[in-house]
Amino acid sequence: MPNATLHLHRDDLPEGLSLGPVVAVDTETMGLNPHRDRLCLVQLSAGDGVAHLVQIRPPELGGPPRREGLADCPRLRAMLADPGTVKLFHFARFDVAILRQALGVEVAPVRCTKVAAKLVRTFTDRHGLKELCRELLGVEISKGQQTSDWGAPELSPEQLAYAASDVLHLHALWERLEALLRREGRLALAEECFRFLPARGALDLLGYGDPDIFAH
């Protein structure tokens, strides 16, 4: 999205910001273990070409004091927990877990474009965000900053642009995937999967990713 607008916020969303009934959300962390690796950035977009990036700073880097180990960002937490706001993710399973661990919030209701793609695009194993944006939207996004240091006190313009790209296209992507789910008669099944995702994240935090409690 060449004309995208990026807003970087420190520690919380600004007061009075509304992003509408469906908000695209993504996270950047120091790693993929939510018990060990801290949450560094939360990206949000209303699907209007504008991305709001919230840098979650620990007290040692200038952030507010933590309460029971949780980041103090009440406006961000309220938006994520709002039952009237749908949160749209790609691979929600990880994001809802890290947000629960770092912010103490159950993120719901949610939709996940990765789950949707796996339910309806069974002719391929390419379900990554980059591949879906290319194949369904004709949009090329770069993953060059994916493994950069998200815990740095100052994030580079390249990091911010990369982080924004992960939410700027989710509304359009969901529109395409929702149409495919309807066409194939799997939208109701997808909605049941989405309702389970907050519990799936909680199970992961308890260590039930492996072994899988649903396995024989």
Rank of each mutant, 00 (worst) to 15 (best):
A161D: 08
G144K: 13
H127R: 11
M79Y: 04
L177A: 08
I213N: 01
C73Y: 10
R200M: 05
E28Y: 04
L197R: 04
L76K: 13
L187G: 09
D212S: 12
G84Q: 07
R200D: 10
P83A: 14
W150L: 04
G201R: 03
G185R: 00
P211I: 07
A81Q: 11
A199P: 03
A78F: 08
W174M: 07
A161T: 13
E158A: 15
A71F: 14
E158I: 01
L80M: 10
H216L: 09
P14C: 08
L129A: 09
P153M: 14
A116N: 04
L32I: 12
L205E: 13
G84N: 12
N3H: 14
H90Y: 01
G20Y: 05
L205V: 08
L88W: 00
Q55A: 12
A81Y: 04
L80P: 11
D149V: 05
A4N: 12
L44M: 14
K87M: 03
P14D: 08
G128A: 05
F123H: 10
E175D: 13
L44K: 09
A202Q: 14
T29K: 03
L205P: 02
R100I: 05
G104A: 07
L61A: 07
F214L: 14
Q43P: 03
M1P: 15
A202P: 03
P58L: 02
P198S: 13
D26Q: 10
Q145H: 12
H35T: 05
P74H: 08
S148Y: 10
L41W: 05
H35F: 09
D37N: 10
L206R: 15
L187N: 09
V115T: 15
C40R: 07
V25S: 03
P198C: 06
A4F: 10
E184L: 11
H169A: 04
E192L: 12
G144R: 11
Y208P: 01
D212R: 13
R66W: 07
K143P: 00
L61C: 00
A102M: 04
L187W: 15
P2A: 15
F91C: 06
R38Y: 07
P157V: 13
R38V: 00
D37R: 03
G128P: 01
G207N: 14
E184Y: 13
W150Q: 01
G209K: 07
P58Y: 02
Q159K: 08
L53D: 03
I141Y: 03
R93A: 15
V96G: 04
R126W: 11
G138T: 09
D166R: 05
G201P: 01
K118Q: 15
L41I: 10
T29L: 01
I98C: 02
H216R: 12
A179P: 01
L53W: 00
D48V: 02
R36L: 12
A163L: 13
A92S: 13
P198V: 09
R200S: 10
E192N: 06
W150P: 01
L189G: 12
L76H: 12
S45H: 08
K130S: 12
V54G: 04
R77V: 06
C133D: 03
S156V: 02
E175L: 10
P59Y: 00
T27H: 06
D11F: 04
E191Q: 15
G16R: 08
R121W: 06
H169K: 05
H52K: 10
Q159Y: 07
A179Y: 03
M79W: 05
A152L: 06
C133L: 11
